[in-house]
Amino acid sequence: MSTEAMTYESAVERLEQIIARLDSNQAGLRETLELCGEGKSLIEFAAGELEAVGQGLEELRLDELIKRLEADTPPAG
């Protein structure tokens, strides 16, 4: 799964699959190590997503946002 297409829920879902597979004790050593590596990547991604919504609430006004966008947009022609 590429990072661009990854979402928090897809990362968590895959992580749960990995943990279930690891808990089953049916994975070989190589598969276990690969799953651990993938799991760590998923955890880092999910932690990054959680961190992005945990730093502090930011409140914007739509009308001001639109004005700012319009001010930043160069006039046509």
Binding site: L22, D23, A27, L29, T32, I43, A46, A47, L50
Partner: peptide, 23 residues
């Protein structure tokens, strides 16, 4: 989100433990 962070930390521990246990 806080519960998810706790769960994520737990998952990280589980993954680390699973890898270590496997080895």
């Amino acid at each position: 989100c806080e519960a998810a962070e706790r769960a994520l930390r737990s998952a990280a521990v589980d993954v680390h433990a699973a890898g270590r246990r496997a080895v």
